[in-house]
Amino acid sequence: MKIALLTYSTKPRGGVVHTLALAEALARAGEDVTVWSLGRGGDAAFFRPVDPAVTVRLVPFPDVPGEGVGDRILRSIAVLGDAFARRAERYDVVHAQDCISANAVPDCVRTVHHLDTFTTPALAACHDRAVARPRALVCVSAAVAAEVERGWGRTPVVIPNGVDAARFAAAAGADGAAGRARWRERLGRYVLAVGGIEPRKGTLDLVEAMALLRRERPDLALVIAGGETLFDHRDYRAHVEERAAALGVVPVVLGPVPHADLPALVAAAEVLAFPSTKEGFGLAAMEALAAGVPLVTRDLPVLREVFGGAAAFAADPPGLAAKLLAAAGNVDPVRRAAGRALAARHTWDAAAAAHLRFYAGGAALSRTTSRVGIVSISDAVLPPS
């Protein structure tokens, strides 16, 4: 089967990580897979090496000085769509992994990782089209699938993410000791957040929580990794910085962390804070569980669904502070074992097998007017526990 997976960037955002890992797993299953993306700002490769069994097609996308977010997104759609329309290859399945690529190639299957809210009419219309027009939809959690059904009357197939559990588990073991030591020498003891500073990641609430936490644990730093995004969050970041300064919290903002260094950074953390206000699955949180790191998340239905008893949940900054304080340096062996087992069950090979069953069902291959039935998580991807 010839399969095209389309994403919007080469940077290490969750949807891009998903696209590459799924592509490689599909290739291991014997499929002919091509990943298409925009090479933003002169990028000639993805943020990490890609298995040579996967073909990569990067479409040049130079920066335009002064271009606004809306115009950049609309240009992204046009450039990717034009390049894909002129392709020489023919594919059995075209699978878009985000709003941009689903608009660029509307006659596709689309994975809805999470739903966004846009205030401009043009971007709101793009978001709507990217859910309404694809042949069939996949979601990485039942909670997001339910949102799609409520909003658009479509019932996606649910296929959860995989996770490279072995890579993060190794960083927490004896062979990863040197890597963990380097991060601790640089950062001391720290609470880690992954995803950058943006409203959806709940950074402001985390700063408020850290101010409360540090009354008991002044030795704990807040470290924020990641954050490459298309959107302009400068005003929000400025607000977070002002509030942090007022509270005496000094976040260590690392920005994007090299792929090879990320597992050790995660494994060396006292606790991973995941206070997102909106998520589709929580891949960074699952990676922390694979490393045996305690996890504290916002109390959202989707995160309850995905993490269950492997995480601690909180609804507001005081709750986050209390749960982070309880978890930092105080690993619960039962919860740690549950988290590692949960991460180990979410393999990319199982996710690829579920995608192939979905493709073989026909909805991905030809347009239909019927809904695509929801597949339970256990039946779709997870092996028996």
Rank of each mutant, 00 (worst) to 15 (best):
H346M: 05
L356I: 07
A350G: 07
A351D: 04
P333Y: 01
A328N: 05
D349P: 09
G329S: 03
V334A: 15
D349L: 13
A351G: 08
A350T: 11
A338R: 13
D349C: 07
R335V: 02
N330F: 13
W348D: 09
A344T: 04
P333Q: 00
A337G: 14
T347P: 03
A354Y: 04
A351K: 11
N330D: 15
H355D: 14
R340H: 12
A343S: 03
A341T: 03
A326D: 14
R345M: 03
A351I: 06
A328Y: 09
A338M: 12
A338S: 08
W348M: 05
L324A: 01
G329Y: 12
R335Y: 00
A351S: 12
A354K: 05
A354F: 09
R335C: 01
R340E: 14
H346D: 02
L356P: 03
A353G: 10
L342F: 10
T347C: 05
L356Q: 10
V334R: 13
A350W: 14
P333K: 09
G339T: 01
V331G: 02
G329R: 02
R340Y: 13
L325H: 08
L324S: 03
A353P: 15
A353L: 10
A350P: 06
A353N: 10
A337I: 07
V334F: 12
R336V: 06
A344V: 09
A326C: 08
R335H: 03
L342R: 03
D332F: 03
T347M: 02
D332S: 11
R336F: 01
R340V: 14
W348T: 04
W348S: 04
G339Y: 04
A351T: 14
D349N: 08
T347N: 03
A354R: 01
A328R: 10
A327Q: 01
L324I: 08
A343D: 08
P333N: 00
G329Q: 03
G339L: 05
L342Q: 02
A328E: 03
A337F: 05
A338Y: 15
N330T: 14
W348L: 00
A326T: 07
A327I: 02
V334W: 14
A327L: 00
L324E: 05
